[in-house]
Design a protein around this nucleic acid. Structure first.
Length: 650
RNA sequence: GCCCGGGUAGCUCAGUUGGUUAGAGCGCCUGUCUUGUAAACAGGGGGUCAAGGGUUCGAAUCCCUUCUCGGGCUCCA
């Protein structure tokens, strides 16, 4: 009879441990560094606490703080400490759910009499949390009956809802009649599936970030709870790195850069969510649009235009008024009682263009493109800079084709958008596939399945990583959307491609086939920027305002050293302009250093300094953004260099 | 729309427990300086303190309403 048990590790090796050994003991037997880094273990595929006793024959892997699951455990345990602190400090407070999330955790609370947390409260809570951490309270797992749990949590109505199964909490799996809890003695206990760190002393590298409102169970009809968000990391270094990253992101916030670089603004006189583009922003935008137009022309798209307002019946027919009337600006009523709406989208107009005459299969695929300005009455709380505006231009295309042509057209459209996004400087993508919404959808399940399969096949054929987004489609069809990572690793939803069998039916579209019979076309909705304004914002943040030469509002600034170099500088600017570049100069009214500094703060790609030597020899001093100063460069060489930058989009 | 926190000069901000004509830096204008690679010097103009109402002898400051911005929730055709 052996007093040893045998454990199998992930690499297939085996280890002998004493009877009763725990996950933590196993980690310690492998090495002290592992024991220190260990957070939880995976025992036969289930995550367990470090104090979990092992049995002979278990397959175990040690999960450390560098593993995502380990990190999530640290965050989850920190959320428990937050809850303990709040319940401790606020009489009558009750708690709901508190999961780990990306970069941190949150916990939802309800304070008596509709109370709310203040920033000062956060400091007090933070201080109490650090005391709890110092106390090294263990996390003790238990399983109790539902009746016992209801008694234990009788003062906490949200917990009781979870125990009864009336509300879901991903963190507290309950089974029939059995409720799992974790206790931090002496006084805190929470419903929880676990696992958790060994004791609260394992935690500490956290920061409470903000207070926010959040509806119970995410439903706006439910009471609003007070949510406290925090961030938590395995080490101080990682916490600080995260906070630094937040600062970086804040520095490149397009709303801030838009003001600093004088690109656009949101005058209060116009209204929330409605932007004006200033001259410099206008140049960038115009070049973005011009390039897009040129590429669309090459790719066989035809350009159309449609008005900004339409009679209501158009959107009744399309179905948009059924689903999105709340999101539209209210109608203008004319004398005869006719209602006109600002258009929230362009599809029905393009459909009318398709339907304006009898179409032959020979005309298909018909690809209609428009920079169509649309207006959506976004709820006041969601408007955000250029990324969520109330008026914006879509680079909207609708491709009408036969069912048979659809897969090839979709593949072609996906290639096209990826290629074009790369030209704008984004090159790290994955694809999301959004399926039928639970409510808000028209068409049969079979039609939807068919369309989803087509999209799935197209995305997978491109070798793209595919992430499912269940229920995220438009009401008329599923969509694939390209997600792009920017320079600091954030992902943005960019282009969408949607396959639609519904609107052609609603508008009774047809074409005459080779068999001389009428057939129903299918429709592909496709936007590359989605919204020109939003794409502008993404690029602005991606480049942190340092636009590549092809997009930069001013590509070259010429600075004469003294005012007797002004004439040479002026001629140089004229020469650059006639070569097609955007150049300006700043006369020598203030020291060169000051003028250089201003140009750098404007993030210009090139500053040219011209002085005595340059006037004598016809050269320039080149000060490139992010590079070293080069002297005595001939004008020809500089022009060749700038031309190459523009051509390469670099 | 809901919860929390803001709104002072073009920008970034200061403005004690309510107390004279509301300040600074940058930017802007004028003058001086004549400059070789990230801030020359001097002077000047600029704010009905988001708007409206209230409390008070007195409001940028306290209260209410509206507008608006930020962080979240919900939403995003």
């Amino acid at each position: 009879m052996s007093s040893q048990i045998t454990i199998t590790l992930p690499d297939g090796s085996e280890r002998q441990l004493d009877q009763g050994a725990t996950v933590g003991d196993l980690a310690a037997s492998i090495g002290s560094r592992l024991a220190k880094a260990a957070v939880i273990g995976s025992v036969n595929g289930t995550e367990r606490d470090l104090v979990w006793p092992l049995a002979d024959g278990d397959q175990v892997s040690i999960i450390t703080e560098t593993d995502e699951r380990g990190l999530y455990t640290i965050r989850h345990s920190t959320a428990h400490v937050l809850a303990q602190a709040v319940l401790d400090l606020f009489d009558g407070a009750t708690f709901a759910i508190g999961p780990p999330v990306e970069n941190g955790f949150y916990y939802d609370f309800e304070l008596p009499d509709g109370g709310t947390f203040t920033p000062d409260d956060l400091e007090r809570i933070d201080a109490r949390m650090r005391e709890i951490i110092k106390e090294h309270q263990p996390f003790i797992r238990d399983e109790i009956t539902e009746a016992a749990a209801l008694e234990l949590f009788r003062d906490h109505k949200y917990k009781c809802e979870i125990i009864r199964g009336a509300a879901e909490d991903p963190m507290s799996a309950t089974e029939t009649g059995l409720v799992r809890t974790y206790e931090n003695p002496p006084q805190f206990i929470d419903l929880c599936r676990g696992p958790h760190v060994g004791d609260t002393g394992r935690l500490g590298h956290f920061k409470l970030m903000r207070v926010a409102g959040a509806y119970w169970r995410g439903d706006e009809k439910n009471p609003m709870l007070q949510r406290i968000y925090g961030t938590a990391w395995p080490s101080k270094k990682e916490l600080e790195a995260y906070l630094t990253r937040l600062e970086e992101a804040e520095k490149r916030d397009h709303r801030k850069l838009g003001v600093e670089l004088d690109l656009f603004s949101f005058p209060e006189e116009i209204g929330s969510g409605l932007a004006v583009f200033h001259p410099k922003g206008g140049i960038i935008r115009r070049i973005m649009e011009d390039y897009s137009r040129a590429r669309h022309e090459q790719a066989g798209y035809e350009f159309v235009y449609s008005p900004h307002i339409t009679k209501s019946n158009l959107f009744e027919k399309s179905g948009h008024l059924d689903w999105y009337a709340d999101g539209m600006y209210p109608p203008m009523e004319l004398d005869g009682g006719t209602e006109y709406y600002l258009k929230p989208m362009n599809c029905p107009f393009h459909i009318l263009i398709f339907g304006s005459g009898q179409r032959s299969y020979r005309e298909l695929p018909l690809r209609l493109f428009e920079f169509g300005t649309v207006y959506r009455y976004e709820k006041s709380g969601v408007v955000q800079g250029l990324t969520r505006a109330r008026g914006f231009a879509q680079d909207d295309a609708h491709i009408f084709c036969t069912l048979e042509q659809a897969p090839a057209e979709l593949a072609r459209a996906l290639d096209f958008v990826l290629d074009l996004l790369r030209d704008y400087g984004l090159d790290d993508f994955y694809v999301e596939l959004s399926t039928k919404p639970e409510t808000k959808a028209v068409g049969t399940d079979e039609e939807w399945e068919e369309a989803i399969e087509v999209l799935r096949t197209v995305a997978l054929d491109k070798g793209m990583t595919l992430v499912m987004d269940e229920g995220g489609g438009a009401f008329y069809g599923p969509k694939i959307s390209v997600q792009a990572r920017d320079a600091i690793g954030r992902t943005w939803q960019m282009s969408t491609i949607q396959l639609d069998f519904q609107l052609p039916q609603r508008f009774d579209l047809s074409y005459v086939g080779a068999d001389n019979e009428r057939h129903r076309p299918v429709m592909i909705h496709r936007a590359l920027f989605g919204s020109v304004e939003r794409f502008f914002a993404v690029l602005l943040e991606h480049y942190a305002g340092a636009f590549p030469a092809w997009l930069a509002p001013v590509q070259v600034r010429v600075l004469p050293v003294r005012d007797d170099h002004d004439e040479f500088a002026r001629e140089l600017v004229t020469q650059l302009k006639s070569a097609g570049f955007r150049a300006d100069m700043v006369v020598a009214d203030e020291p060169l250093g000051a003028r250089i500094r201003k140009a750098k703060m404007e993030k210009l790609p090139y500053v040219l300094v011209v002085g005595d030597d340059d006037v004598a020899r016809g050269t320039v001093g080149v000060n490139p953004r992010g590079g070293d100063v080069e002297r005595d460069i001939t004008i020809e060489n500089f022009i060749a260099r700038l031309s190459a930058d523009v051509a390469n989009h670099s």
